[in-house]
Simulated scan of single mutants.
Amino acid sequence: MPIIDFPNIDTADENGLLALGGDLHPDSLLLAYGRGIYPWPIGRDFPMAWFSPSKRGVIFTEDLHVSRSLLKFIKKCDFSVTFNTDFKEVISTCAKVHNQSREGTWITKEIIDGYTEFHHHEHAYSIEVRNPKGELIGGLYGVILGGFISGESMFHKEKNASKVALFVLLYNLRKLGIPYLDTQMITNTTKNFGATEISRDKFKHLLQMSLGMKKIDVKNFNLNIHEIAQSLTN
């Protein structure tokens, strides 16, 4: 059964932990993201954990930074980018790749199944990056609600493939007038693109503004990476 309600996010503890329990029913995720809350499994023997940290990582699209070295790479690479063509494979590969790292993965089977169903309800998206052989070599997935969009996780199997996915996403969000991407936390990769931390109160304000916007029309996304890179160097 879907979650009926969450505690006030201002009651989250110092680590951002707000609640334990519940499931990843689409209505549960819809309620959570509409309140600025996201799930994050903390162990096999624990119920699902829900977080709303006091500091939130975001990338303001007007502050998008793309390094000259990445632009140079994109102009020469032979990658192709698609949108929403293989969500299940993207999230599953995120889990596999991160599980092989020292940190392990938080993307459990429950997360994969829950977000895949959320995708079927058109509230989650994926970006796929492929090489000339058609092999999936990078990508990311996230959540879209109205004008709100998050980046949940990404992966790469070839150099810079995940950065290409994030680059395409941020460029198109800026072109469409979407003010920010919710990254939840800051990583080295998102920091290089201009990620910054904002307070929970500021994030709540931005979230309410975003939820009131028209839903992001991904059909208008420009996926031609060479054209995009060239436009940023003109």
Rank of each mutant, 00 (worst) to 15 (best):
S52K: 08
W40K: 08
H123V: 02
F83I: 01
E103H: 14
V66Y: 10
T233M: 15
Y171T: 07
W106C: 00
Y115Q: 09
D5V: 14
G139N: 05
I216Q: 08
G147L: 12
V164S: 05
I107R: 00
K109A: 06
V66I: 15
E117H: 13
T105A: 02
K75L: 12
G43V: 00
T82Q: 04
T93Q: 07
N15Q: 07
L136V: 06
K72R: 15
G43F: 01
P41N: 08
E158V: 03
P2E: 07
V218W: 04
K219I: 12
V81E: 06
L211K: 10
I107G: 02
T108A: 08
L29N: 08
K133S: 15
H156F: 12
S153I: 07
L181K: 04
G138P: 06
G34W: 15
V58L: 03
S162F: 07
I42C: 07
P53G: 04
A161N: 12
I149N: 04
S210A: 15
L71P: 02
A12T: 00
D45S: 14
Y115K: 02
E197T: 00
E135V: 09
S210I: 11
V168P: 02
T189H: 13
E110C: 00
H156I: 01
K214D: 14
K109P: 06
L31R: 08
N131S: 08
D5W: 12
E117K: 15
P47K: 01
A229C: 13
D182S: 07
S54V: 04
